[in-house]
Write a protein that binds this DNA or RNA. Sequence first.
DNA 1: CTAAGTGCAAATAATTTGCAACATG
DNA 2: CATGTTGCAAATTATTTGCACTTAG
Lengths: 147, 147
Amino acid sequence: MPTPTKSASDIICTIRESGHRVTNGKRAVAEVLISSTSHLSVDEVVQAVRAIEPEINQSTIYRILEEFEELGLVVHSHLGASAAVYHLAGQNHAHLVCDNCGLTQEIPATTFDVMEVQLREKFGFNLDRHHVALSGLCATCRENQEK
Amino acid sequence: MPTPTKSASDIICTIRESGHRVTNGKRAVAEVLISSTSHLSVDEVVQAVRAIEPEINQSTIYRILEEFEELGLVVHSHLGASAAVYHLAGQNHAHLVCDNCGLTQEIPATTFDVMEVQLREKFGFNLDRHHVALSGLCATCRENQEK
DNA sequence: CTAAGTGCAAATAATTTGCAACATG
DNA sequence: CATGTTGCAAATTATTTGCACTTAG
């Protein structure tokens, strides 16, 4: 059963219910995350948010993203690059990152269904399928490497 | 077919063959990596190397590790923590990192045999099994979370 | 009102780089 | 002796934090 796509008001609601306060900054971050199809670095979130709320500070964005993550609204990954990237939770996908060119493909998290069960049974480990990032070589770089 | 364990002289040999020069620093880093069973952060490598070569500089270690990685001698991963960790290549294992407590378990890379084939066939992606790090919850943290 | 949230600037942490001095092949 | 390597200090990049001021509930 796929997680239903969240709307901005769902996010606002979750914030309020958790006892946190709703601010313009949080509304803007929510909108940015919802309208983005890809993964955003903190810096990209900052740029996008400033189009809505020009006066917002970078450290505020860090704090908002941290709060959203604690509330389970967003997840972040380290896709090999230096800076972390954020996106909404509940989007069922995992990442394949090319070591060579940095290309990131998204693949359905269902790819890991079997592995998830296997890891739990064998190692007692509960895989977070929203947070999977695998390294390797994309098709193009592999071909070039084989010369 | 498991990759045979490298010795310090294998590493030295590879360096020389690649046209790079062999220095005391590189010898020391090679020894440290070989005698370590676990993953070392750059800082840990620096500490360990200084036991052999007290005068070595941190940025030199960064440069040596970078060179070793280009030569395919070592690999590094980002295990969720801030600093990257390094270990010898060819040790067939992957990592399971607990999001909550940071515990890192090593599991045999053969766990990914099926997945490797699947990723190549479906997405043209060539998984690097030495570089796999999966996030989730370890058994203990999972239990505690279920209350 | 009052605790949560924010801006700002300074502090950390991890890593990289420019350059002059040095050492390997 | 030519070029790869190193030490050092300064620069970068990503992220965090202390604190006074502001604002949502």
